[in-house]
Amino acid sequence: MKSQIRIAKEARKKAFEPVMGKIFELCSERINRRIGLILRTVDDTNETQNHNEKDARASLKYKIIENKEGKLAGGLDEDVVSHIIDGKCEPRRNLYLFPTKSAKEYYAAFRGILWFDGVYEILWGTVTEITTYLPIIFQMLCNAEIEEQDNLPSNSKKNNKLIDIRQVLSNFEGNGTDEQINHAYKKVSNLFFLEWMKFTTLRSDERKFTIADGSPNPTVVTPKTIKTRIDDTEENQYRGFYQLNIRLSEFANNQLYQVLTQGIMESL
Rank of each mutant, 00 (worst) to 15 (best):
E235W: 08
Q4N: 14
D43F: 00
D164R: 10
K22G: 02
I146K: 14
I35Q: 07
S156E: 05
T128V: 11
F138V: 09
Q255D: 12
P216G: 06
E235F: 10
Q139N: 14
I137M: 13
G36V: 02
T126C: 11
L95C: 07
F24W: 03
N175C: 04
F98R: 10
G214S: 06
N175D: 07
S102V: 15
R239G: 05
R33L: 08
R166H: 04
S59L: 14
A58R: 15
L244S: 09
V19R: 11
V81G: 00
I165Q: 10
K158E: 08
N254I: 02
M140T: 06
P18W: 01
K208A: 09
N254W: 02
L37M: 09
V259G: 07
I64R: 15
T201D: 02
G70F: 03
I181R: 12
A109P: 02
L123S: 09
E25G: 11
K22I: 01
E129G: 11
A11D: 06
Y238C: 11
K9M: 11
T200N: 10
A58M: 11
N155M: 05
M140L: 14
R34L: 04
T201M: 08
I264T: 08
T228E: 07
L134H: 11
E173N: 14
N175M: 08
E206P: 02
N236M: 11
L268W: 02
A108W: 00
I163S: 07
T210P: 03
K101H: 04
M20D: 04
V188T: 05
K101M: 08
P223T: 07
K227P: 04
I64F: 02
L26M: 09
V42T: 03
T131H: 12
F116I: 06
L162T: 09
E250A: 13
I246D: 08
A73G: 05
Q167L: 10
R57T: 02
N151K: 12
L26G: 03
N67C: 13
S154Y: 04
K186M: 05
D150F: 04
Q139G: 08
R203D: 02
V19G: 07
N217S: 10
V19F: 04
V221G: 08
A58D: 06
L248I: 08
K157W: 01
Q237K: 15
N159E: 14
Q243E: 14
Y107F: 12
E250H: 11
H183D: 09
L134A: 13
A252D: 05
A144K: 14
A103E: 00
N190W: 01
E179L: 13
S215I: 05
G75I: 05
R30T: 03
K208Y: 01
P99M: 04
C142Q: 10
K63N: 09
W124C: 10
H51R: 15
T219S: 10
L141S: 10
